[in-house]
Simulated scan of single mutants.
Amino acid sequence: MARTKEFDPDAALRSALELFWRRGYEATSMADLVEHLGIGRASIYATFGNKRELYLKALDRYAEHRDAALLAELSAPGPALPAVRGVVRRFAAESTAEHSRLAGCFVTNTAAELAPHDQAAARRVELSWGHIETLLHSALVRAQAQGELPAGRDPQGLARMLLVFFQGARVVGKASADPGRVRDAAEQMLTLLD
């Protein structure tokens, strides 16, 4: 008869995500995970696989939750351009908020730490960025169709520009103690939507 798990795998994955997000992949040891999750090494391996597999599952979880929230923001009924502006300002605020600034974005952190030499991590980063770009593009196309965005603007180019801004804002916000740097850049970015 198979033993039942003595821990909640979903809660353990959330806990692993928190630790990886705060410390990064390389700086998190298996011993750190055992201590932080409060479960044995064998249970971690049996449920999630090795450290890399656990990290990738945590990254998937992060992207699922973050992308769902972004979808809800950008696809709400009504005018689309205020939603896009709200997302830009939210990213800027989150990038400079003291409680989240030092952690940065888990996808951005993965892009910098693992993507250059880990194909599975790089694929997940590209999928996440592609999804964000698609959500932004759809909202901007809708804004243009509703007359909120001038006809001469390129929704695809703007979506890519915003994606790159979001990633850069996360890096600058994490490394800089000057929140005005990101906020001012966000406001300048928004003038391109006029």
Rank of each mutant, 00 (worst) to 15 (best):
A186R: 03
R142A: 12
L71N: 07
L102K: 14
R124T: 03
A63N: 02
E133Q: 09
D178M: 11
G130K: 12
V125G: 00
R123P: 02
R90Y: 10
A115G: 02
L136Y: 03
R89E: 05
V107K: 00
G180Y: 05
A143Q: 08
R89S: 02
G78Y: 11
I132Q: 02
P82R: 11
R123C: 07
R183S: 06
D67F: 13
Q188P: 06
S128G: 09
K174H: 10
E148K: 05
V84G: 00
A93Q: 13
R160Y: 14
E94N: 06
V182S: 00
A103S: 11
V182W: 00
A112D: 15
P150M: 10
A145Q: 11
S176Q: 06
G168Q: 03
R170C: 12
G152N: 12
F106S: 01
V125R: 02
V171K: 00
D178W: 08
R90G: 00
L163M: 07
R181H: 11
R153A: 04
A69K: 15
E126T: 14
R183V: 14
H117T: 02
G180L: 12
A97M: 12
H131Y: 14
L102Q: 13
S100T: 15
V171Q: 02
V125Y: 01
L74P: 00
D67K: 13
P82C: 04
D118F: 11
C105P: 01
S95E: 05
F91G: 06
V171T: 08
E126G: 04
G78C: 07
Q156H: 14
F106D: 01
